[in-house]
Amino acid sequence: MDGLILMSLAASALRATTPLLLASLGGLFSERSGVVNIALEGIMIFGALGAAIGTFLVERQVLAANPDASLWYAPWVGVLTAMMVGGFVGWIHAVVSIRYKADQIISATAINLMAIGIPAVILTGLFDNSTRSAPVQNRLPQWGIDGFTFSPLVYLAFVLVPIAWYVLYRTPFGLRLRSVGEHPEAADSVGIDVRRMRYSGVVISGVLAGLGGAYLAIGNLNLFVAEMAGGRGFIALAALIFGKWTPIGSLGACLLFGTFEAVGTLLGGGQLLPPSLVQAVPFILTMLVLAGFVGRAVPPRAIGKPFEK
């Protein structure tokens, strides 16, 4: 009996970890290139919106022509849309903060504010309802063995951790990306295009955060709901810092935060602790980390500073 609870707790912890991990890895690429990305929250919302609407439109189009068509690919179109939308929103953040040298936090705040207003406007246009989309009929499949099944994006998120590590630490691209985040002037002097590296970092972060949003919309649920990210973008950012801006560290932090979320949900009906208190614990931990009580978190040195050539 206890084993079963533990198994289901582990499974729901993995599910709760996935969107955090995807966004956190996204933030990793952006912040290692020297661009703060507190827009992860907004990008996740836009990604979720893109996934739900992409899937919905494909379904509507195909089912109108042939009601019996097989639509296994519809959610994958949604995933692709989410990646593209996320990348696009990340690109806006990049243009405003790299090209026009705006304060990166203000630019990201604008994107987070847009993530409140624009989805509602689009939903009103498409569904006559400002808070939720129509449910899609084909959500992402579940892969796995009996009872222990996960959306493909869960596997993808965990596979992406070693890939991110390899890209950042074992490829020329990663070396350049890290160098423009630590010392852009030096990187510039050896011929690295600082702006281009930062653009790629921020757009990659958008794509990954968009994937995180897609998981929320069509992996975990089957529709888009307003404010669906529910602060996960910020938590992912906290996890990134908790993990000291490394892929492995982020994985650990995301697992920890995901477990707290799962425990909080489990306690919702339990009689141990009020869930609201449990869910506050990761934030307190992150603050302690930031203050240096639990190991020191050293950010990339040039983070937040626009590059003046």
Binding site: Y100, A102, I106, S107, A110, G117, I118, V121, T124, S130
Partner: peptide, 24 residues
């Protein structure tokens, strides 16, 4: 019939974006 207050939220967000991108 087809407009909501969210149009206003969108306007506010865009104002911030345009002010942020002064270089624009």
């Amino acid at each position: 019939s087809d407009l909501t207050r969210d149009v206003v939220n969108m306007i506010l967000a865009l104002v911030v974006l345009f002010i942020a991108a002064k270089g624009f």
